[in-house]
Amino acid sequence: MPTAVHVRELTADDLDAAWELGRFAFGSDPQRPPHVTRPVPGLTRYGAFDDAGRLVGKAVDLHHDQWWSGRVVPAADVAGVAVAPEARGRGVARAMLTALLRGAHERGAALSALYPTVVAPYRACGWEATGVLRTVDLPTVALPRHRPDPRLAVRAGTPADLPAVAALYERVTRHRNGPLTRRGELFDFYAADGGLPGDGLTLVEDAGDLVGYASWQRGRGYGADSVLTVDEALASTAEAARELVGVLGSWASVAPTLRLCLLDGDAVSVHLPLASAREHERDLWMHRPVDVARAVAMRGWPAHARGTVDFALTDELAQWNTGTWRLTVADGAAELARIGGEADLRLSVRGFALLYAGAAHARSVAQAGLLQHAAGTDPAALDLLTVGGPVQLLDYF
């Protein structure tokens, strides 16, 4: 095969070939979902072609926004990366991801997240592992039961309730770092059918205001192997969380296992019998900056954080990030400004991703070889980047 590849945005004429490439790579059902072979708003599809014009690779930039401490940060989240087996190991993925980052930078994205099937190629392109989406199984009978709170109303939800559900999701997640906002053209496109997200939706209301919800898939059967899969269970008050957990626990006689994704430290998780949890699945996610200056300036920062630190950054794929920078944090905001000269702290883009996401402290990043520092210089000065706390995700993409 020729070594040269040519990367461009896919057109409607390319989508059949892209579907087949992805189907073979991921072992997908041969039945095509209707959206995969037609244009979809809110995403950009990239393809790599050999000299004969054959599609040998594909990748998708999802135009997501992420919450970072109460502020919206535009992201280029990556999905659907696939390379034909005959073209693997020849730089195809790197060429596509380079083009994707360039296009994302031009449209104003600041960050990028992805779920890898293999880590090494993404590390070579500047992404680093920063967290895990955990799905656990709990014995339904172990969930605490209590007398229903007479001040709260529990009812089945309908499609008309989905705007209120979206608003509650935002109240729960907006102060965290990393969750998708679930706004924009892409989410509007997939929500256009107006249906419920699963088999059922349970709502908890307080004086008519939504304070908790759970969306779930019933599964099959009612024997020992029956599972109730909870796609999402969130609450904005402890009372609503207890009510939701009680409703979920009521399934014990017909669904002995409750399966759900955890959001660390949220109102629902603190009422679950986590000592009884068995891990069902772990989905690793990775982060990298698209534009470091935007990533710093656009997010929220803790009001108590204050300080300044200089560092040099190296980013082979996104050269606009490479240089010497001064980070200044004060009064709930931050700025990254270019400065001249050298710096005693020298950071790789993967090290930046770990610190920015709150996934590691600077001394650990230095021990991993992703942060170099002059003799006598304490790398902990770069812990200023970590002060926002750890990144979290609730959506798989």
Rank of each mutant, 00 (worst) to 15 (best):
P2W: 13
T3Y: 07
E9G: 13
A12C: 02
D14N: 09
L15M: 15
D16R: 14
A17N: 05
E20C: 03
L21Q: 08
R23S: 12
F26H: 00
F26Y: 15
G27E: 15
D29V: 10
P33C: 08
H35P: 00
T44I: 12
G47L: 04
A52R: 13
L55K: 01
G57E: 04
K58P: 01
D65V: 00
D65C: 12
S69E: 10
V73L: 09
V83R: 02
P85S: 11
P85E: 06
T98H: 04
L100K: 05
L101M: 12
L111T: 15
P116V: 05
Y122D: 05
Y122E: 09
W127Y: 11
W127A: 02
A129W: 04
G131I: 02
L138W: 05
L138F: 03
T140L: 04
R145E: 13
P150I: 04
A153S: 15
A153I: 15
A164Y: 06
A164K: 05
A167Y: 11
Y169L: 12
V172D: 06
E185G: 09
E185M: 06
D188T: 11
G194S: 02
D199E: 10
D199A: 02
T202K: 01
L203C: 06
D206H: 14
D206Q: 13
D209A: 15
S215G: 15
R220H: 14
G223E: 10
S226T: 11
A238F: 09
A238R: 13
E239I: 01
A241K: 03
E243C: 06
G246V: 06
T257P: 04
L260V: 10
C261Q: 14
S276Q: 13
E281M: 12
L284N: 05
R288V: 01
V290L: 03
V292G: 05
W301D: 01
P302I: 09
T314P: 04
A318C: 12
T322A: 13
T324G: 05
A334T: 07
E335R: 15
G340I: 10
A343T: 08
R346S: 05
L347M: 08
V349F: 00
V349S: 04
V349K: 05
G351I: 06
H361C: 06
A362L: 03
S364P: 00
S364T: 13
Q367K: 12
P379R: 02
P379F: 02
A380D: 14
L382V: 11
T386Q: 10
P390Y: 11
Q392S: 14
L393A: 15
